[in-house]
């Protein structure tokens, strides 16, 4: 019984929501909007639930003195400060804005900027012309890379100035992105879409049930 109920619900909602995509009638749209509203209402509860488990996890860490337990205090300090100011004074309060601009922004930007370093090291390690296909990929990648910045055209126009074709780096980059890249991407998108349909049918028909705890 415990397993049957979610399977029946999944089937019902799956079929009904699929139908609403093809029916513009006000009743079917009302059903669609209602279900979407339910989903939206769940979000804040999930957040509360998440906050509770976060607190539980870190309380346990502190209580059991699990390695690096001291950092759990930092979690609580951040959580309480932002929640206190945000709830009491709202997100437009200068204090909240200050914290956002001077804590959240630089921290997020730092993590994102790590990408520059990691892309460089990953590219150096992984970009090897081991096979013919890899060589083609490598050449295309290098053209897109250098065509992406103005220095690419500068080099092209200086070194290859004898060619009757200016700004070749950026134009070749555009061509690669607009043609080979586009067709390969479409292929992957088609495969993924069929995969999604297949997965959705398995879920709706209750064949794929590991998400409710596997087994029969």
């Amino acid at each position: 019984m415990k397993r049957q109920v979610p399977l029946v619900l999944c089937f019902l909602f799956g079929v009904v929501m699929c139908f609403t995509q093809f029916s513009p009638h006000q009743y079917s749209q009302a059903v669609y909007n209602e279900v979407i509203n339910w989903a939206l209402i769940m979000a804040p509860f999930a957040l509360i639930f998440g906050t509770i488990t976060l607190i539980q996890t870190h309380v346990t860490r502190i209580r059991r003195r699990i390695e690096h337990w001291q950092y759990s205090f930092v979690v609580f300090a951040g959580l309480l400060t932002m929640a206190f100011i945000g709830i009491l004074f709202g997100p437009q309060d200068p204090a909240f804005e200050w914290l956002f601009n001077n804590v959240q922004v630089p921290l997020d930007a730092t993590m994102f900027s790590l990408l520059a370093f990691l892309i460089a090291s990953a590219a150096f390690r992984a970009f090897r012309a081991r096979t013919f296909e890899a060589t083609l990929l490598l050449i295309a990648a290098m053209i897109v890379l250098i065509g992406n910045v103005p220095v690419g055209d500068l080099i092209w126009n200086t070194v290859l100035s004898w060619l009757p074709w200016d700004n070749g780096a950026s134009e070749t980059r555009q061509w690669i992105l607009g043609n080979p890249n586009l067709s390969a991407r479409r292929g992957i998108i088609l495969g993924v879409s069929l995969g999604v349909i297949s997965q959705a049918i398995r879920l709706i028909l209750g064949i794929e049930r590991s998400y409710i705890g596997g087994g029969d």
Partner: peptide, 30 residues
């Protein structure tokens, strides 16, 4: 796992015939 291979994983690992059947259906779609 590239794109659709992610969705095929459950069938592949469990070897359950019905899940594997859905993979063949996907190929028909292609």
């Amino acid at each position: 796992l590239i794109g659709e291979e992610l969705y095929a994983a459950s069938a592949y690992l469990s070897k359950e015939p019905m899940l594997l059947g859905s993979l063949r259906g996907q190929d028909w779609g292609k």
